[in-house]
């Protein structure tokens, strides 16, 4: 039991440190990376909580969280990194950026 508590505390400390990085930034990618790391640690935390409380159903939630973490990271990157969700991301994003440089005044 004590080792679950110890591991849980370690994971929580790690989450706090990663959150500090998410707040400090400086770039968008640092924040996304920190968010992703927090997600990974949350999966571990969920598993540990399941063992701590003797309810292995938490593992289902951990699996779900792993899935959501992955999708969220990809979606955030796609939205912010390429500014669009559409297929030919690079072309469109470069077009957008170019278009936006001269269209920036009205925006």
């Amino acid at each position: 039991m004590i080792m679950y508590v110890a591991a849980t505390i370690a994971v929580i400390v790690a989450i706090v440190i990663a959150l500090a990085r998410a707040i400090l930034g400086p770039s968008l990618y640092d924040r996304v990376l920190a968010g992703n790391a927090v997600g990974t640690k949350t999966i571990l935390l969920l598993g540990l909580m399941g063992f701590l409380t003797g309810r292995p159903e938490f593992l289902d939630i951990a699996l779900l969280y792993a899935l959501m973490n992955f999708i969220a990271t990809i979606a955030i990157l796609k939205f912010f990194g390429y500014r669009t969700m559409s297929p030919q991301m690079r072309d469109i994003s470069s077009r957008l950026r170019n278009g936006h440089n001269d269209g920036g005044a009205d925006g």
Binding site: A6, A7, A10, I17, A20, L33, A34, A37, K41
Partner: peptide, 25 residues
């Protein structure tokens, strides 16, 4: 568990300490 906790904290600390995005990765 001990080793895993150590590496989890190591990763988080590295995330905080390393100088730029690519190294934090």
């Amino acid at each position: 568990f001990a080793a895993g906790s150590f590496f989890v904290i190591t990763g988080a600390l590295g995330l905080l300490r390393f100088p730029d995005f690519y190294t934090r990765m």
